[in-house]
Amino acid sequence: MKKYLVLIRTGIMDKLNFRVSLIVTFVGNIIYLITIYFLWKAIYLSSGKETVNGMTFNDTMIYLVLATALFNMMEIFLVWYMGNQVRSGKIVFDLIKPIKFGLYMFFGQLGEVVVNFVVIFLPTVVIVYIVTGGGILAGKNILLFFVAMILAFIINYCINMLVAALCLFTESSWGINIMKEVIVSVLSGKSIPLAFFPNSIKSIVELLPFQAVYNTPLTMLINNNLSVENYVKMFGMQILWLMVLLCGAVWFWKYSLRRVTINGG
């Protein structure tokens, strides 16, 4: 266990070394949030309605602010990293370390996410709570949100690991990475709340793993009318996908490594 703690510590220290990146990410997010604030305000004003698809302007904003914070917290550059390592041939050094590559990367990323949680997500939640005068509930849902967030992180990591393994086959990691980002950001409900999706699309998206990354934890944090049945269904979906993706990622990584080593890279 100790070596994993060391990895997490290294992740944290890496992050702190880059104070400018923290400031830039912070300022960037503020401007980004202001932009979506004005955009949605204009949208709601133009519609002349208070509530659209069961969401008021405030609901939408709380959702989008937290989705952005959650996205920034969980953003990992695994595919990008893999692409670089494969292109430069340095991937060999990662593979010969006496620790499984998947775990090695996982704990390094976890360290970064811990920092991100403290410097990005927590302040955002507190600010939203104060600004909206209790727009976020504070109760057992916090606990449930935490569990959902951890599951979401692992799901997100597995998705990234699956895509990263593709980089072993091709040097076109740029194209692969951008496709992944686009799919996740649209289908996870990060850019637009799933409530706005047309019903036919919504019913499909709800079955996919992507919404389990952002939509599920956020819904648990924000929505106060969830029944026990809802919780069971959402957690069930997360756990199901987690298992499928975890097995898929482990298998595909092994398979890719074997294929690539046989072909001599």
């Binding site: 519609s47 194209g175 637009i192 706005f196 999706f197």
Partner: peptide
Amino acid sequence: ISTMGILFTNIAGFITFWIIFKNFD
């Protein structure tokens, strides 16, 4: 692959946009 990546990004942007206009005119 890269061209597909670019097209994907733009189609996704377009979908986002289309969803907004499905709800608001």
